[in-house]
Simulated assay, not measured.
Amino acid sequence: MFAVTLEGYGGPEVMKWAQVDDLPAPGPGEVAVDVVAAGVNRADIMQRQGLYPPPPGVSDILGLEVSGTIAAVGAGVEGWRPGDAVCALLAGGGYAERANVPATQLLPVPDGVSLTAAAALPEAAATVWSNIVMAAGLRAGQTLLIHGGGSGIGTHAIQVGRALGARVAVTAGSSFKLDRCRELGANTLINYRDGDFVRVVTEEYGGADVILDIMGAGYLPRNVEALAEGGDLTIIGLQDGAVAELNLGLMLFKRASVHVTNLRRRPEVGPGSKAEIIAELRAKLWPLIAEGAVTPVVSAEVPVVDVAEAHPLLDSGETVGKVLLTIREP
């Protein structure tokens, strides 16, 4: 089969679409998916740069989410059969013609979503739902602050927040991205280049009940300031550093919480697992997608043979939402 290989670590040019060994047949509890499209995520960029190795035993091929059709099912798999249209969360291996996936990490393609666009859902949906709903308990009437509102995670989180009845504030770095965030339902728009999100969120809402943060250390002190009493800060990225000082006194005063989570290294099954998250998505989020309250936001579809052009798009000022690699016709 063909897959994206790495000719060393470095810039996008190290990625090549090349022939690799065929996958083995799916093992017990697994399915083989003929991949139609794969989502591009920042974790892929970090792995390409040599900064984010896959977990032990996981394919070193990039790609954490795919859509496609089931080609074969392994022993013990129930509820799925060859030909089913699916999207899936992976720990690796998505930039390829075929991927083996634990059946517990499969989702049906939601009604009203194309097979290609469905590749934009698993990683963003699992990350957003597990953090702002399962961990932080976002509910109607609360305020959600999203950093990086124009990203794949951000555009999904805006829609989930609004669908749950929350007020949504976002930060982004351009008026173009903020305008798109408004179209998706964001109430409060903050340009992080010249705006003070702590002041804005505090003055307008008395603080944020839930903050979804991709920046990490550089934003930690201000995020704590921006929290409302009883608020939850959920950190899912470290784009602005990994080490910072936490004001425990202010946290204590606000009765606030900080969650720092990683999706890729969660266990496949059990408490806090990928299987648990996928089951929640199917039961609670997929109906919202089917009714159109939440939709995948796709900024670009790049043929996989041009994979080196896809990664730079994540940092483009013109990209809002997800970038997909298209691997075969649906």
Rank of each mutant, 00 (worst) to 15 (best):
N247S: 09
E78P: 00
R42Q: 05
E78F: 12
G83W: 12
I277Q: 00
S273N: 07
G137Q: 10
D213K: 06
L252V: 12
P54F: 09
V323K: 05
V113M: 06
W17F: 11
V77E: 03
G83E: 10
H147E: 07
G321I: 06
A85E: 13
D232R: 15
Y192G: 01
Q105Y: 11
S130F: 05
V77A: 07
A3Y: 06
P221L: 13
L23A: 00
R48C: 05
G185D: 02
P221C: 10
E318W: 11
A293K: 14
S299V: 08
L288P: 03
G185E: 00
A25K: 15
V128I: 11
H156P: 01
A310R: 11
D232I: 15
A172K: 01
A172V: 06
P12F: 05
A300S: 10
G292D: 07
N131L: 10
V101S: 04
L314H: 05
R264T: 09
N100V: 01
V307S: 04
K274N: 00
D21S: 14
T295P: 03
A85Y: 05
P54S: 06
A140C: 09
L314G: 04
V77S: 01
G270N: 08
V210L: 05
P56F: 13
L90C: 10
L144S: 02
H156F: 15
V168T: 00
E291S: 15
S299P: 05
E268N: 12
E7R: 15
L288S: 04
G231A: 04
V109R: 06
V302T: 07
D60T: 10
L184G: 02
